[in-house]
Design a protein around this nucleic acid. Structure first.
Lengths: 225, 225
DNA sequence: CGCGGAATTGATGTGCATCAACTCGGGTGG
DNA sequence: CCACCCGAGTTGATGCACATCAATTCCGCG
């Protein structure tokens, strides 16, 4: 990716390692001044924004290797909160230092642009999910997303623990808790997965993929031609 | 914003002015190699992505002053298409040239980060909209968004023409065409607005704002505490 | 002037939210 | 160490918002 080992070292120097955080801890809260980006090393974090009516919208679940806080650069202030879901190790990257560094290292600047751009791409995927998919497709997509992201980090793509509640999953996917619960049992009955409390085993990845995309007749699609 | 007039001039030099484009023209298509960002000077553009089932998801409508293509930086390839909705003037900014410039001008780099970050913020708003709002709130939010963006460009915030079809609005908001149509007539009956074909007059901005946020009892909210 | 797609309007169906009741674990304090 | 409690999760019954289906009207345009 065009970074020399010397570059990496310079980047490494500005990263702060923080001691492990625990379930319920906040990385930052909605309204806080923006100072740093955060990278999950181990564990998981959820981000969420308040909605006008007093509820909240879960914006994402962040797994190892993923970065948090990019949306706050614009207003120099966080518009969402980040809460740790389980004991986690998080690195902090002071943004101002990072900006100085990216000015000096073009390839690092390019990486930053890509990172920000990728985040936009993810959001786009979620828009498609929320705008056009039915409940079944949403949950399947969610499970596959977790699976793929864990796999990328060398973890099992088919056997893992959910660090978030059904309520949080439902909120994230725009579904009621009950719907999430029912779908878990349905998927299990159909032999697609095994569910025991927080423990998930995906038994038939291809079938889940077929559910998300190919759409063996899901929702009569929202009037797309 | 920290840019000297000399900086501006340098930026200006790399911008290409293109001759006016017309309804139906593409700025780029899904799959095209990424080369440039585009800025709408006058007119409007819609971006949309194919969905697996062959339909499409409208990702956004872009008005004067707004930038298009940021999501393509990551993969160096466009993941969506951009189609001109009405006769429009569009500027093209070759991204590679821009990157060279932002390397040299820290404050310009900062602006770029902010721009990308802001885009993420917009997407976040849409996620909240699609995940938590009912049809009425979505359409009200859509109208207010147009109103505010036009106003920012010195145009009337309460009297304008829609360059997109009801179908496209519905697609964007995750609603059926018929629902959009019915809501327009309902809003009109309630004295919130006047609708004549593509011509829109917003008669009661405060009431529309109340619909979006304050929620005088919209949908019994999706189980938020 | 007549065609065809866009928009409106009405009737009907349904996916999922909501309401309600019950179960299950896991943590706590006696 | 166990009885209790309480929030999380499951399961079932019901209702509603919005999609879908079906006509009809309305321009825009050749």
């Amino acid at each position: 990716m065009g970074l020399t080992s010397e570059d990496i070292e310079r980047l490494d120097e500005i990263v702060k390692r923080t001691r492990p955080l625990h379930r319920g801890d906040f990385l930052f809260r909605d309204g806080d001044r923006f100072r740093s980006l955060y990278v999950v090393k181990t564990g998981s974090v959820k981000t969420f924004a308040p909605s006008p009516e007093g509820g909240e919208q879960v914006l994402g679940f962040h797994l190892p290797g993923e970065i948090i806080g990019l949306d706050a650069i614009d207003k120099d202030q966080h518009a969402c909160s980040a809460k740790v879901l389980e004991t986690s190790a998080i690195c902090e990257i002071p943004f101002q230092r990072l900006e100085e560094l990216t000015s000096a290292i073009p390839s690092l600047q390019h990486q930053m642009y890509r990172l920000l751009s990728k985040e936009i791409g993810h959001d786009t995927d979620m828009l498609l999910l929320l705008g056009k998919k039915n409940a079944e497709e949403r949950l399947a997509a969610f499970l596959l997303s977790l699976s793929q992201r864990l796999h990328k980090r060398g973890l099992s793509p088919s056997d893992f623990y959910l660090s978030m509640s059904r309520h949080e999953i439902g909120n994230y996917l725009g579904l009621a808790v009950e719907t999430v619960s029912r779908l878990f049992t349905r998927f299990q009955d159909d032999g697609l997965m095994r569910v025991d409390r927080k423990h998930i085993e995906l038994l038939d990845l291809p079938a889940l993929e077929a559910l998300v995309g190919g759409n063996g007749q899901g929702r009569r699609q929202n009037q797309q031609r």
